[in-house]
Computed example of a mutant assay.
Amino acid sequence: MAFADHCWRGLVYDSRNNLQMRGLVVLLISKAAGPSNGAELSFQHDMVSGIYSSQRSLAEITELIHTAFLVHRGIVNIGELKSCDGLLKDMQFGNKIAVLSGDFLLANACTSLAQLQNTKVVELISSAIGDLVQGIYYDNSNLSEENCLTHDIGISTWKEQIFLSHSALLAKSCQAAMELAKHDAEIQDMAFQYGKNMSMSHKLHSDLQPFIKGKSSDSVAFSLNSAPVVLHQEFLGREAWIKQIREAQSKENLMDFTKLQEAIKAGKGVTSAIDLCHYHGNRALEALECFPPSEARSALENMVYAVTRFS
């Protein structure tokens, strides 16, 4: 069991690499749901290993969109560069490549999306792209607080923004997979809820890594807008939180993340983030109860277990 848990943990989360599991989730939830009762017999002939070809295409589209936005996020702000960062021309060239590569992937995704010939699916995935754009806008526009280090937001706002930037694509792709198999609105909603809550748990698990037991010796820079920090600020109060940040800064404005990490771990933010991770994990598992028991459903459950265990 421990080995199996380790394997699922490695599939869903790896601190060194970006693991693209969104397409896999779409395939697994498609297989778990199977064909709908109202599907025509001729339509079911298009199914291979319990998954329709249109659902396989959707899984590829989901990965393409996710990768395109990752590439776009690699664009460097030239205005913030210093002479020691390297040649400006190299950075400008890299930015052009990032823009063109991301646009190419996104264009291919949109072309494949149109070929599915399903208006509702096109609408769902298009809205997910819009959510991603809005989420990235929030990430980039809210950095005017206190030396551009931390947002003045509560956990409810954090969840809204994380849904846009991390959860919407997977949630709506899972829903779209059910639409392609002609499942009813209830099954579509359960698939949406699984994708949403699974990705929220995944993000919370990622945010918690610098703060969980056994990681204290691996003190590294962490986002001051991550879930444990936002919850810590909410409990502590904005003024006291800014005071802690200033106390952890040197005269050269360099951040002592070890000192700040210990202050956050001493508060309630970390345990509250773990509780929130478990909450979303349980919601994801509840959503799977509408699907019949199967290996695909077990795999989806194991993914949730992998991102809600911290020992």
Rank of each mutant, 00 (worst) to 15 (best):
L164G: 12
L208H: 10
N197F: 09
A185D: 07
A221V: 11
I242C: 03
G214V: 14
E179Q: 06
L180H: 05
H232L: 07
E252P: 13
Q233H: 04
L164D: 04
E160Q: 08
I187Q: 11
Q244S: 01
G214K: 09
E239F: 01
A171T: 10
S167W: 12
S219M: 14
L224V: 04
I162L: 13
M255Y: 15
Q249K: 10
A221D: 05
A191E: 00
E239S: 07
F211H: 00
G237S: 00
L180G: 00
D189T: 15
H202Q: 06
F222I: 08
I162Y: 10
S201D: 12
L208P: 02
I187E: 10
A168F: 08
A181Y: 04
Q161S: 14
I162E: 06
H166G: 11
A171F: 02
A181I: 07
K203M: 07
E179W: 03
E179S: 09
D207S: 02
D256W: 04
K251A: 06
F257R: 06
K259A: 07
D184P: 08
L236M: 02
A168D: 05
L231W: 10
Y194I: 07
G195Q: 08
H166I: 12
S226H: 10
M200V: 11
G195W: 12
V220W: 14
L180Y: 15
L208D: 00
K243C: 09
R238T: 01
Q244M: 09
K172F: 00
C174W: 12
I187L: 07
E247A: 07
S156D: 13
D184Q: 02
E160W: 12
D189W: 06
S165Q: 05
H183R: 09
N225A: 07
M178L: 02
L208C: 14
I162A: 12
A177I: 10
D184Y: 08
F163K: 01
A168W: 14
E234K: 04
L236N: 03
S173W: 03
T258R: 10
R238I: 09
K159M: 04
M200Q: 01
D189A: 08
L224P: 08
A248D: 13
M200S: 09
K213W: 15
V230C: 00
K243Q: 12
